[in-house]
Design a protein around this nucleic acid. Structure first.
Lengths: 193, 193
DNA sequence: TTCGTCATGTAATGGGTTACATGATTAC
DNA sequence: GTAATCATGTAACCCATTACATGACGAA
């Protein structure tokens, strides 16, 4: 997870730890800042694994005498590792946390993988929705214990959020498919009325 | 967290572990089923702390010879512990995870606490929004590295989600305030045009 | 009789956090 | 000169998960 995030960020350009930490928010959209504990431990582990290499910052031409920082960059093995992780388009790729990271690095995958992941996630959410809906019916028929009004409101809001994400995914899927077919052939399938 | 959830569920009625696990989804709206590992460990810990008591299920009149189950119920100390945890209306109460649990048990708090928590969460989300918006501006002015189109889309969707939650919270806050003022006095403040 | 689900539990592990420690550099 | 922020790191801990183990009960 964190590993994939770091690999993905470093593939775009080498960085030192402190900046990496900020990019996690900017690029991955994480709401809380990554802790140093996680970051430097992960970095250390990845160094040992040979996926990244460190070298002390060359004083950049633009900046005036910045403190020396440790810049990390991907090794070929790291690039390979990234590809390997991104190649997994199975269920784990559309899990809540994993999905976001995958999505953020979609530019690095082919359209087939993108579609499989987007569709996988959508059907996963759809299942979730069905389960809740079912359970909501049972509640309304008094087959279960009476549910509290706040708990109910929480449920309702949750369902709406998931429905929203499903629509978002559908839009993305359609966009990808349009891209795909417009690249594929000069004779697009009948689609617009 | 889990502790608070269990206390809150047991305060409504005694339950055995297996059912508790399911109620966590129904009442708290958790997307994934709680694992046995967490559940029974937490239960054990709470037993030792004296917050809950266990007793083997009396064969309920309705059911026909069900297997004996271990039913947990709150002790007075447990009820006290629940009150204590719910009384914390500080920042920790409007953290992502904590908030949901608090909200689900809002019926057990007074309107003052409810408003403080709802407003706290709203302003927390608002800050988050401001930070991202600011950062988005920087990106558009090319002060940062060019951001990937998928990463951008993720960002956009995230912002919209947060904005939605802010609106949801605002509606809830208004509803609570209406409740409050309608209970407070026979002379409601001018509000409707 | 065997399969599904109910029901309880333990051990190993994972993936992160907080708190602590340290020091350079920059802006005021 | 001093406060803020940049920058790197370690140790202790927390909270949960997965995998494993066990077995009763009801329905087919």
């Amino acid at each position: 997870m964190l590993e994939l995030a770091i690999l993905g960020l470093l593939i775009e350009s080498p960085m030192h730890g402190y900046e990496l930490r900020k990019q996690v928010n900017v690029v991955l959209g994480w709401s809380r800042l990554l802790s140093y504990g996680s970051l430097y431990l992960a970095l250390k582990k990845m160094l040992k694994a040979g996926w990244i290499a460190e070298h002390v910052s060359a004083p950049e031409p633009g900046a005036v005498s910045r403190r020396q920082r440790i810049v990390y960059e991907l090794t070929p093995a790291g690039t390979e590792q990234f590809r390997g992780l991104m190649a997994d388009v199975g269920p784990s790729a559309w899990e809540d946390d994993n999905f976001d990271v995958r999505f953020a690095f979609f530019s690095r995958t082919d359209i087939g993988a993108r579609l499989r992941i987007l569709e996988g996630r959508r059907s996963r959410l759809q299942e979730r929705l069905d389960r809740v809906q079912q359970q909501l019916e049972r509640t309304q028929h008094q087959m279960d214990r009476q549910i509290d009004r706040y708990a109910m409101e929480l449920q309702r809001h949750g369902v709406e959020s998931v429905e929203r994400e499903v629509r978002w995914l559908s839009d993305l899927i359609n966009a990808e498919r349009r891209d795909e077919s417009s690249r594929d052939s000069a004779a697009p399938p009948a689609q617009t009325p």
